[in-house]
């Protein structure tokens, strides 16, 4: 699978003309759906439910873009991608958006030819250990064997942390999530490391007995997770960026999927602009003027997405609260 994607990337790079770089929005309108690269299965972020319907906050971002561009949040097709496949899939044009709990870093933003459209979850890397090991702090992990997935910032932060604290460790690097978790749960490794959100999700949804695993207090990195698009298509970049901001702004304005129709007649000028009753913000994006209504009505605001997908797994809003409540979620003015 990985090789297939790599070969596809190489072939696409070989054959594609460069006209394609400019026209993702037109291509999406023409084919009638958004092709979205998501995680192969991370509870709360992107995972198919028992009916095979994809759910999660990363999935909601894809649905928001489909609602904004096509007026229908269900017009999304999903491509599950491993950490290793994700960038090539985006670069080669196989997916229109990469919404796959991906950390925004300088080198990815530049040398990988990506543009990060914002942050839909502020995360950080942590460690999970079996409770019976009686480990209280990551500083006690000298000599531990650590299970980790390849091709992520996780692998680099891990090496940095142990170097900084002059400790040794042995990595066991396995690509498939099932295999790496199996290695941890069967005791091949002492520690499993990934973003804290991933640890919480894995503990809640994959651990045979969730209570037997503890997440250590140290958060060893900044992991702003967000959607990414290809370099060189500014219009598509704008659409994805403002679709995300619309969800955050709606929470701040108190607009939700339940009340947006009633609120459309509100006297608040910010709401009037948001729903497209005044001004032509939608047209500036090259979209229907009710683009934001489609998003909020069909997908919901950021809080609704968070509560539906992450809260049931035991996630706290924490630093992902709105800036007005002491968090980091902040949308630039929609005007």
């Amino acid at each position: 699978m990985k090789l297939v994607i790599r070969c596809a990337a190489v072939l696409a790079a070989l054959s594609a003309g460069h006209a394609s770089a400019q026209a993702t929005a037109e291509a999406v309108a023409k084919k009638g759906f958004v092709q979205c690269g998501v995680n192969v299965g991370l509870a709360g972020f992107s995972q198919p439910d028992s009916q095979g319907v994809w759910k999660g906050i990363d999935v909601d971002l894809c649905r928001a873009v489909a609602a904004a561009v096509l007026g229908d949040a269900s017009k999304v097709r999903y491509t599950p991608l491993t950490a290793q496949q994700r960038f090539t899939a985006l670069q080669s044009g196989e997916v229109d958006i990469l919404s796959r709990n991906t950390t925004w870093t300088l080198s990815r933003d530049t040398s990988l030819g990506l543009n990060f459209a914002g942050v839909n979850y502020y995360d950080g890397q942590g460690f999970m250990v079996p409770a019976k090991r009686k480990v209280k702090s990551a500083k006690q992990l000298n000599g531990a064997t650590v299970c980790v997935q390849p091709g992520t910032t996780t692998e680099l932060n891990l090496a940095d942390y142990f170097r900084t604290h002059k400790m040794k460790f042995k990595p066991v690097v396995i690509e498939k999530l099932e295999e790496v978790l199996n290695a941890y749960f069967t005791g091949r490794c002492d520690v499993y490391t990934t973003d804290v959100s991933g640890l919480v999700a894995v503990r809640a949804s994959r651990a045979p007995k969730p209570a037997e695993h503890v997440i250590l207090p140290e958060v060893i990195s900044k992991e702003p997770l967000g959607p990414a698009v290809r370099h060189g298509d500014d219009r598509w970049f704008d659409i994805v960026k403002w679709s995300l901001y619309a969800m955050i702004e709606a929470e701040e304005l108190g607009l939700s999927s339940k009340n947006i129709e009633q609120q459309a007649g509100s006297a608040n000028p910010a709401v009037q602009r948001f729903v497209g009753a005044t001004g032509d913000l939608g047209k500036m994006l090259g979209l229907d003027n009710r683009w934001a209504v489609h998003i909020i009505k069909q997908v919901g605001n950021y809080a609704e997405s968070f509560d539906a997908n992450l809260k049931p797994l035991g996630f706290e809003r924490g630093i992902n609260k709105l800036w007005t409540q002491g968090g980091l979620m902040y949308a630039p003015p929609i005007r």
Binding site: K2, R6, C7, A9, V10, A13, A83, Q84, F87, T88, Q91, S107, R108, S111, L112, G113, P150, G151, T152, E155, L156, V173, E175
Partner: peptide
């Protein structure tokens, strides 16, 4: 395995392959 990790960290799939 090492080449795969290298490709992902650097994004240079063609050189890696």
């Amino acid at each position: 395995s090492i080449a795969n990790t290298t490709m992902n960290q650097t994004g240079q799939a063609i050189e890696g392959v």
